[in-house]
């Protein structure tokens, strides 16, 4: 698992993908930071991070689109699948590599916190809670992308489908209130990442929220393992 993690992480920075992800994230978040914090003189870090939450919807698929689809296309997955590694450790290793890039990117945004800190007071409880929530929510988008990458053989399709699903997750909160069937709106609520993120932004770092995000990721990674395993048995 560690070998796969290392290889993927290296690959992110040997190819433009890692730089594109980090660069675009910091560019867009920098623009938002400039308008929402610098120009309006706001020192609210939680609000700053909340304004960033829509960015991973569009950018997380960049990290995940090639994880499995490319390996499948150029057959390098044969090396992994015929090695003694278990499928679960391959999937987790790849997921963790994307998660590491995401973590590094978030560390990059700490610069904004330092800038705010040099002009005003920082509320560390709120900052840490918001960052943990944001990191976990991004992890969920990465887990979704990992699954989609295992389903498709084409990077572009993987990215587009992942963006579609992430976008749907983003608008779920608005959809829930217009769905007349109670059961459907309850099911949809299960997938509402933003509703789970809200308490983190209000410095309510709760066990249930963390557990929800971790379960969400685990479920999607489990599905990824099942999808790849099923393909090996496929008779279609």
């Amino acid at each position: 698992m560690i070998a796969v993690w290392k290889r993927e992480l290296q690959s992110y920075f040997m190819t433009p993908i890692g730089y594109v992800f980090v660069g675009f994230f910091l560019l867009v978040s920098g623009i938002l930071f400039t308008f929402n914090n610098l120009m309006s003189g706001s020192g609210d870090v939680a609000a700053m991070l909340s304004s960033f939450t829509m960015i991973p919807i569009f950018l997380a698929p960049i990290l995940t689109m090639r994880l499995f689809s490319e390996e499948r296309k150029n057959k390098s997955e044969q090396l992994l699948l015929t090695s003694p590694l278990s499928l679960t450790s391959i999937v987790i290793g790849k997921f963790l590599s994307a998660l590491t890039v995401w973590l590094l990117t978030l560390i990059g945004t700490f610069l904004y916190v330092l800038i705010i800190g040099s002009y005003g007071r920082l509320y560390w409880g709120e900052i840490i809670s918001s960052y943990i929530g944001f990191f976990l929510m991004g992890g969920c988008f990465i887990a979704v992308g990992t699954l989609i990458s295992a389903v498709t053989e084409n990077q572009v399709s993987a990215a587009v489908i992942s963006i579609g699903i992430n976008f749907f997750i983003w608008v779920i909160d608005s959809v829930i209130y217009v769905v007349p069937v109670a059961f459907v709106s309850t099911v949809l609520q299960w997938f509402s990442l933003y509703e789970r993120y809200d308490p983190f932004a209000r410095s309510q770092l709760g066990f249930s929220g963390i557990l929800y995000f971790l379960s969400f990721m685990t479920a999607f990674l489990f599905l990824t393992v099942r999808v790849i395993d099923k393909r090996r048995w496929s008779e279609g």
């Binding site: 070998a3 690959s11 090396l79």
Partner: peptide, 24 residues
């Protein structure tokens, strides 16, 4: 396999070290 399962973005050494790691 018929098409060698290579990672084009790695050097030969890196690739073979990776193979060593996954093959224990």
């Amino acid at each position: 396999p018929e098409q060698p399962p290579l990672y084009m973005d790695m050097t030969v050494d890196e690739y073979l070290k990776f193979a060593c790691a996954i093959k224990e």
